[in-house]
């Protein structure tokens, strides 16, 4: 219930004019803040939706493959410069963005993630990182404007921002792959290990010198 409330607040907050026009006036914020947050709305509602998910759908989403394919298609669509432009120039596409990113990206991701094998999850993370990185590089280097509603300097900034996100994701994925999924775990384990060693040393009989 808390999740649903958070999702609703986040969604309405993003929709309200000050935040919406603020985030959309800048290409980097549009791509690296607004769009991901709309997907997060879907991820937040996924656990609540799961309780009402029909059995046949849960079964048909074998290993989470149809769900994740849906996510890959939806994210590809919203990465197109023409799609970004259309959301700014046509209120119907703006509505489509606010509906499709939670329902066709975040929610299926949240629902299918549980059903995916660990290697499948790694594939999805690697795919997202490479897409975001490639797009960032393209926007940073493109000599012409790709979006009608953004200036060339904004486009280059968006490119840098996307590359920064990709870099952060690579570091995060690296740490997660090597030290476990929770960011707290390596530190906790290290701390515990330190204490265990300390306790063992304290308890061990002193060696004769």
């Amino acid at each position: 219930m808390l999740r649903l409330a958070a999702a609703a607040i986040l969604w309405f907050g993003l929709w309200l004019p000050p935040l919406r026009s603020g985030l959309e006036s800048d290409m980097a914020l549009h791509m690296t803040v607004q769009i991901p947050l709309l997907a997060v709305v879907g991820i937040l509602i996924a656990p609540e939706v799961r309780r009402f998910e029909p059995r046949w759908l849960a079964e048909a989403d074998w290993l989470g493959i149809p769900g994740i394919v849906l996510v890959l298609f939806s994210t590809s669509c919203w990465m197109l410069p023409v799609a970004l432009d259309s959301a700014l120039g046509d209120w119907r596409m703006e509505v489509a963005k606010f509906v499709s990113l939670p329902l066709l990206v975040g929610m299926p991701l949240g629902l299918s993630w549980q059903r995916m094998p660990p290697l499948g999850r790694l594939f999805v993370i690697a795919n997202i990182i490479s897409k975001v990185g490639a797009l960032g590089g393209l926007y940073l280097a493109a000599p012409i404007r790709l979006c009608a509603y953004y200036r060339l300097d904004q486009q280059a900034e968006a490119g840098s921002a996307l590359l920064a996100v990709a870099t952060a994701a690579i570091v995060g994925a690296f740490l997660a792959s090597f030290f476990g999924w929770s960011w707290r775990r390596p530190f906790r384990d290290a701390w515990k290990g330190h204490r265990a060693v300390a306790t063992a040393t304290d308890a061990s009989p002193s060696l004769p010198t």
Partner: peptide, 30 residues
């Protein structure tokens, strides 16, 4: 059961939407 039809449906609608957005896979910019 139902996996292949669902996957097929997702791929078909996904390709159709991408194709529509890119005027038949020909353009990515306005």
């Amino acid at each position: 059961r139902g996996f292949l039809p669902l996957l097929g449906f997702v791929i078909a609608t996904g390709l159709a939407t991408l194709g529509f957005a890119t005027s038949g896979f020909r353009v990515v910019t306005t």
